[in-house]
Design a protein around this nucleic acid. Structure first.
Lengths: 241, 241
DNA sequence: TCCAAAGCAAGAGCAGTGCTCTCTTTTTTG
DNA sequence: CAAAAAAGAGAGCACTGCTCTTGCTTTGGA
């Protein structure tokens, strides 16, 4: 089963009231059951009543834990960002210092793709169309940035080792590239940061097209195609090895 | 208002029964009203009953025209693909034969972005997460291919004029690239076709990230960034001018 | 021309949804 | 130990997609 991922206890369950612990357990159970239904039917068909029913509680009781359906979804979104970020980071640690920057880059991108293919509905939750009228609360931005930070780190390491050749940058975007660099990675050349942001978005375009069926009847050997394209993305940001 | 786009009559309204004409008018009115609600509340909140109410008919009558909510959505999806394709083609005709391939490429990509920013919910309908449990019927594939075909055409024209330098291609994807080329554009080198498909997906990754808020607090001058990145995409597929 | 068949609108109704409110029970805390 | 806070249970509201039955109107063939 691809839905075996479950909610870890939010705190190390230190000596706290039995009530607080019970609350965390119920909260986790709700999220797990919601995730299960998400994996089966998708976000739009996620039903609070069905979750409550499956957990043997009445629907109104669930509102003690999540004030609305959107709040439950938000919690799942944050968890999904974290899970994706963790999968990506885990793929990286196996490669850092033993491999080239391009290999690390490809490993991380591949981990993102693998995670997306394993948890398609959760991926859709965070990188598909956001739920209607929904603007991501600030609580999600940190979790959302993890993969991006990871890619920045890889390029930074390569840059410090002299393994980055800045790509060309037209004058029309130089100012914006410098602004982005100042915000995201002051130690990297603006040319590299601009290319990095572009490649970051393009990576998810690639994954999304495969996941959402746009590659049907177009790309057959998607693993090979993805690996090749991702290594070209690495070259685009200036990674030379 | 950005929702002034309306459904054109499906056939030139040739001399046909008054009943058939009425049917087309009602069908168009339903789609127009649905599109209006889509633009306001998004796909998930699109309600058949609300559409019927707004049109002064009873909800059950609407089922004479669309057998289910999903069928209405499918019709809107096809229309959206067509509208996007038409916007892209329209942007191209103003440039064909008067401009370089790169300029045509950028114009088409820019038109895609502009359309997406103008009709965000309709864009989300076709390039966001597909509606739950929904697999696109074959009727959508032709409409979905229009932008891709357009990009292929631009590169083909450039190739015939000798303005394409095939990018490198690793051995691991050569077979798949040749297969894609045979399917999509037998007259183009496999290297170019592979890069084309990749750039095609990456274009929509770029647009999606901007539209769905992933660029919030990251990219400020999005027009400049988009223009630059898209011209780099053109270079990636081998366009030299 | 007439009449059966098909197309269409209307209304009632079913099962499901998110969410709110009240009431009771349980647990924590001053 | 009593007051307060937290949790569960149940009824209920307004909404949804969808089905079914009942009449009315347009259409096309004899």
């Amino acid at each position: 089963m691809s839905t075996s991922r479950s909610t870890p206890p939010r705190t190390p369950s230190a000596a706290q009231g039995a009530r607080a612990r019970a609350r965390q357990e119920v909260t986790a159970a709700i999220k797990d059951e919601a995730r299960r239904q998400l994996a089966v039917d998708g976000a739009a068909k996620l039903s609070l009543r069905a979750v409550a029913r499956e957990l043997g509680m009445v629907s109104s009781a669930l509102y003690r834990y999540f004030p609305s359906r959107d709040d439950l979804l938000t919690a799942l979104i944050i968890d999904a960002y974290d899970a994706l970020g963790e999968a990506a980071e885990h793929a990286d640690v196996g490669f850092v210092r033993t491999s080239s920057a391009t290999e690390r880059w490809s490993a991380v991108c591949g981990a993102v793709r693998d995670w997306a293919l394993t948890y398609p509905h959760e991926y859709a939750l965070i990188y598909g169309s956001p739920v209607p009228g929904y603007t991501a609360p600030d609580s999600t931005v940190r979790a959302a940035a993890r993969v991006g930070q990871l890619l920045i780190g890889i390029v930074r390491d390569a840059h410090q080792g002299g393994g980055v050749t800045p790509p060309p940058l037209s004058d029309a975007v130089r100012a914006e590239a410098e602004r982005m660099a100042a915000d995201l990675a002051p130690d990297l050349p603006p040319e590299v940061v601009a290319a990095l942001v572009a490649s970051w978005a393009q990576l998810f375009g690639l994954v999304g097209f495969e996941l959402f069926g746009q590659f049907n009847r177009v790309v057959e050997d998607r693993s090979a195609f993805f690996a090749h394209t991702v290594s070209r993305l690495a070259r685009d940001v200036g990674l030379t090895a």
